[in-house]
């Protein structure tokens, strides 16, 4: 059977979740692989949430918030933007390709953009293949011990 990526999307309530809803009300079709968690602000996107998603078997994690300058809470998205580079380095340490985490800005009026981002990210993860974290970590554990 072909590989169907399983992706966790964490979306801010005001822009990206509303944008995703707009894709729905506009009946735009896109890949069904992203399963969404709604938080109030991208500022809430704690690195542990991302790690939890990978731990639970996600092949990719999509974070989406308001465009820079448009944050409903003034600057929450800037705080998240700053967390990402470090988080990606942690991912590398864990043997997870950093491309499996993506941060995007999607406004409430960008239903089409959300559709595009999801489709593109699903294809990217598809080409990266399954994460299969357990299998990856076994050799790492072995070499560490």
């Amino acid at each position: 059977m072909s590989f169907e990526p399983r992706i966790v999307g964490i979306l801010c309530n005001w822009c990206s979740y509303t944008g995703a809803d707009l894709a729905g009300t506009s009946r735009m079709k896109y890949a069904p692989n992203v399963r969404v968690v709604r938080v109030m602000c991208s500022g809430r996107m704690d690195p542990t949430l991302v790690l939890k998603a990978f731990q639970e078997g996600a092949d990719g994690v999509l974070l989406a918030g308001c465009h820079i300058g448009d944050c409903h809470y003034i600057s929450g998205n800037l705080k998240t933007l700053r967390r990402i580079p470090l988080l990606k380095r942690v991912l590398v340490e864990l043997g997870i390709e950093p491309e499996r985490l993506r941060l995007e800005w999607v406004s409430a009026s960008e239903g089409a953009r959300y559709q595009g981002v999801v489709n593109e990210f699903v294809e990217q993860i598809r080409s990266l293949g399954p994460l299969d974290l357990e299998a990856r970590r076994l050799p790492a554990t072995a070499s560490a011990s």
Partner: peptide, 10 residues
Amino acid sequence: CKGCGTCVAS
């Protein structure tokens, strides 16, 4: 507090 959660995440 407006409940954005930025402090929570940090």
